[in-house]
Design a protein around this nucleic acid. Structure first.
Lengths: 295, 295
DNA sequence: ACAATAGTGTCTTTAAGACATTATTTC
DNA sequence: GAAATAATGTCTTAAAGACACTATTGT
């Protein structure tokens, strides 16, 4: 009924007839089967024109040696959900303390992705994980000094995102190993979470200007196009893309300047822009349809 | 890092140097400050052409006498999140047991809305609530026999959705009461959750055929238009709407039949349709823009 | 008869996409 | 000079929205 209902984990409404008034005083949360709450982050960035995701290597069982999404316990009573997400992100990327770290973090877009709570998704106990999605500009390599065994940006193309769905941890499958697997397997149901995050990201940049969150403060239209091409995994028509971006009010604003040099393989210098004040793109930048995935 | 990280609620990485290996064996979940997990449901339906939401009246403090979203504890180890949502919905609507109840429940669309976890959103303890959004056809009035003090469908227009944001429960504000308030206030942060649910619903019916989930199996185009008008809160052009719906592949399929009678105020009998097999609408049914909410 | 409504036709405007073209830069 | 690329122009097609119109029903 409410954030916390009168109905408790055990069914006390069938006959016991307990007068529930003032049970607040005698309420002892430790008397019930506990559920743990964690916050995991799907942090995406662009490196060398390819989409990367931040992963950490597990040092403990289960899934020891497997790569997993950065995340951790919600600190009860101390922080809210987005607060926990930025904390985990800062810890795992090593972006802590320094001024430039704060500046880099401030440019990161963060939004809630969804929650995952199947009873057997973690073999130890029932864990509900609230997943967040982050769009980051190209960051330095994570400093592994803080927490996990190792943290690194991985190209999403190198990961196996076929959902194992068959919950429960397979024995100790080490990082690479066995046969000629299509890619790295992630721990727990993190492949599902990451796939959902990618879906969200692909849809999000259609209607929002958040593709610019992958870039530095000033950028060119071709750089912006590279973001769309990397996230959507498709080549886009340069001319049409250029005109379309400029036609959306508030998407980008010209700086009046151009880049210092042309492209590495020739071509004129591009004008630079920065993100405008639009929160939604009207009209949106729709993905190429392909007429296949209609349903 | 994972569904459950090596980092625990307390910070043990600063100096203690505890070897974390095999702490699984000695792991005692009850040793940490607990977080409760509840599942709340924003259940929407159409009654007499107006959008309604299912609410229950709280019988206990805090917010005793206030209306709240139906919901309750996640049963640890027993159910997943959508399972808890349908259970709460069935309990609170009284749609339990009977065959027709199961049939009615099967027609309900359910999707995850988001999670809410501010530390002070419930004064008793830190509660993370996973909210679900449900689209239901017109259901009978809830049977209050089961759980809460009372459950009823409320027109959303009768509710005060101005987010109090100032978390924490105001003293015992009874149901209506004090001055000439714009509408009923909801318990906890449920006004925020409901507002998010309405936003999601308004956006969802643009791109998905889920507006049909508000109707019986067979429906007419004008009935479908009434759904859009109620959810969007706007009158739509009957002629254009009709043609647009029929032009979207897989949205609706003709039954070949018509209604028995014309409209209550005259007009020809309408043809009947049922939902098609499209999962996404191409092209979508976009809301009227109004050029105001561009950003 | 009259009012209301289902359903269709037509026209204008907007935008998407294919394609062509010019100018500028690197190698 | 050759190749690549930024940026702009033009044309075709699809779709949204405004409006008009016919046909059918209830009061």
């Amino acid at each position: 009924m409410a954030a916390q209902d009168d109905t408790r984990g055990d069914t006390e409404d069938d006959g016991t007839g307990v007068g529930e008034r003032d049970w607040l005083a005698e309420y002892d949360p430790r008397a019930y089967t506990p559920v743990a709450v964690t916050v995991d982050v799907v942090a995406l960035t662009l490196r060398a024109g390819e989409l990367h995701v931040l992963l950490v290597e597990r040092g403990e069982r289960p899934y020891r040696g497997c790569w997993a999404l950065p995340g951790g316990f919600l600190r009860a009573g101390e922080e809210d959900l987005p607060g926990a997400a930025v904390r985990e992100l800062a810890e795992e990327t090593g972006l802590q303390g320094t001024l430039e770290a704060a500046a880099a973090l401030s440019r990161i877009h963060l939004e809630q992705l969804g929650s995952y709570g199947a009873p057997d998704r973690d073999p130890r106990m029932h864990v509900v994980s609230v997943a967040y999605l982050a769009f980051a500009p190209d960051l330095p390599d994570p400093q592994a000094g803080t927490d996990a065994a190792a943290a690194a940006w991985h190209p999403v193309s190198a990961l196996d995102l076929t959902a194992p769905r068959t919950a429960g941890p397979p024995a100790d499958t080490h990082g690479g190993g066995v046969g000629a697997r299509p890619g790295i397997r992630l721990a727990f149901d993190h492949a599902v979470i990451l796939a959902d995050g990618l879906d969200r990201a692909r849809a999000k940049i259609e209607y929002s200007p958040l593709a610019t969150a992958f870039l530095q403060h000033d950028f060119t239209i071709p750089e912006l196009r590279a973001v769309y091409e990397a996230v959507w995994g498709e080549r886009l028509h340069a001319g049409n893309f250029h005109r379309k971006v400029l036609s959306v009010p508030g998407f980008v604003e010209s700086t009046g300047a151009t880049t210092e040099r042309g492209g590495t393989r020739g071509g004129p210098r591009a004008r630079t822009y920065h993100s405008g004040d639009a929160r939604l793109l009207h009209p949106p930048l729709l993905r190429p349809s392909h007429e296949d995935d209609i349903r």
